[in-house]
Amino acid sequence: MITRKDRIFGGLLGASIGDSMGAATEFMTRKQIKEWFGGWVKTYVDLPDHMFLKGATKGMVTDDFSIGYYTAEAMIKHQQKMNDEMATEGLLKWNSDPLYSQCAGPTTRLTIARLRGEKVPEVKERLCMNQRVTNGGGMKAGIVGLFNPSNVDGAIEDALTLCKTTHNNTLAIAAGCAIAAATAKAFDENASYLDLVHAGIYGAEKGFARAEELGVKPAAGCSIAKKIALAAEIGLSHQGDFENAVAQIADIIGCGLYAYESIPAVFGFIAASKGHALDTIYMAVNCGDDTDTVACMAGYIVGAFNGVDAFPKAHLELIDSANGYDLAKMAADIDRMI
């Protein structure tokens, strides 16, 4: 049996592994990844010189896992469940780290300026701001799944609170809720990888409905729930075929910045690899485009699903030392809080 703490630990470690491995492949096409690294990337490699994070070393996470980490840190420090204050504190702490603040996109920058009470230029906005349907909500939502073991609905509510501080549109929130719901579901003793997909679809549907209820801004874009189902369908029909599973999911679903690409892609990779911890992460690391975010989100889910022992010990040592983390302690702290 996998203990609750080991699932939390696994989620933290899985997300860190995905983010740091994906840091080297981010932006590139699948073909470029293969050429640059001489094959698929299945370990920690040096970051190419062109990457944003200059001077980053192997095993360092990027803006993706770090925001979840800082959010968890705030919740542990205050012994407080997710609320607006925790979401804000995590965001500001994350942004005060120069390593990650350089990666913040325009939407997040604007939100942070507002939160800090800085004057921001008033721009007339359209009702639907479709360029803001991005995966920044999804990338941090896995963490609230770890605070809600087996409590899918609780994870969805917390994801809603966490995501709306920065990504206040129905689709980006629905995407965040899908990741949170699947991470929470991963704690079920009898859950299979199909249940993870099911929870993702449920989370997207319910998150979208709850966001609408709360008057969150609408946006035009693909349906998160329907695209998760399509991604899983593609994944299921390419099980055991790494190359084609990755190609088909990347070509049809997409692994880009849009929430309706990278979040569904996560579920496609889970379906294709039957929820296997490292295989799912490897697919995400090599899918091209926003690889580190996709791999980070996938890592939360499959890490909790398989527990920390699914990852060879060397991973933890590298992640802890490269980032100055003590993920074992964080996992124990979260476990105690629940």
């Binding site: 590139m28 088909q248 997409g254 880009g256």
Partner: peptide, 13 residues
């Protein structure tokens, strides 16, 4: 170069 979903594959769908 640009990484992104394939226009060709998506037309087929």
């Amino acid at each position: 170069n640009s990484a992104g979903a394939s226009v060709e594959e998506r037309i087929k769908l």
